[in-house]
Amino acid sequence: MIEDAELAEPPSHGDAGIVAENVTRSFGTVWAVRGMSLVVPYGRVTALVGPNGAGKTTLMLMLATLLSPTAGRLRIAGVDPAEDPVAVRRVTGWMPDTLGMYDQLRVREYLDFFADAHRLSKADRVRAVPSLLATVRLAEYAEAPVHVLSRGQKQRLALARALIHQPRVLLLDEPASGLDPRSRVELRDLLRRLAADGVAVLVSSHILSELAEMADRAVFVSAGQVVASRELSELAAIGAGHQVGWRIRARDPQALQTVLAERGLTGGTLTPAGLELPPMTEDEASDLLAAVVGAGVRVLAFGPVGSPLESAYLALTEEGR
């Protein structure tokens, strides 16, 4: 009995929200996705990051049952979308990066229509729609026509649409691009809450500082391939060995410039946040700091430009460009 239980332990990720194995997709001669393999576990927020044209949206479309892979295998909630797309749609919520909406409808009608399209009963819709509108802070716009909503409000409505049928797998393609700071914080909290409820969340974004706060894991893609999958906690280490930009701010910028010039570092960009220095490794950076301080310059701030995720991103997607 006990042996059986041990044998039943899944060898791979049979219980993950999304499993992609060697997934490939071409459009004519363009290979948008070439052999991506990744796992998006339940209960976690996974970030999908990569440069423009890396194939993030194409992957999301395949996961959302809209596109079929040219090759490779997908399983969403254990089901292959090629075999049973309807079963996948039942449990998957998708928010596209385009904001196509029915402008003629009112906000409430819009959500109600999609709830109906997901076969929610009248009673369920009456309950779910207002509560979801409250969740995305659009309750006061319930009777407003969709076309009067701002970009960020439309984005929040699109998020509500993706959540209307309480999906167990959530695909968000650049959900934060038009959101104000407060809405971003709310999005982060919402995603964390959903993950805590066991939803598998895959979110793509270019705003890395945000992802750093909302994601548990990051999958780096470049030129149609997965170049790395990391826990966010591991990321600091990836950036370390690579050259990243550094920023330094001193009481007396003139004195700082002089010392830097002595070390051959001329022409850094001066920003309000400080002087941006060319890329260097952590070791080189700490040597530089010691030298500057040693020369008597009073340094106010010194650190890498961007978050660990950003550093890792730049390091990992370098080769693919």
């Binding site: 959302a64 749609r89 385009t98 904001l99 196509g100 029915y102 076969r119």
Partner: peptide
Amino acid sequence: GDRERGTLATLQVTLL
């Protein structure tokens, strides 16, 4: 037209 406006795909991922 729906495809151009980006509304078709949102319909296609429902149970319709």
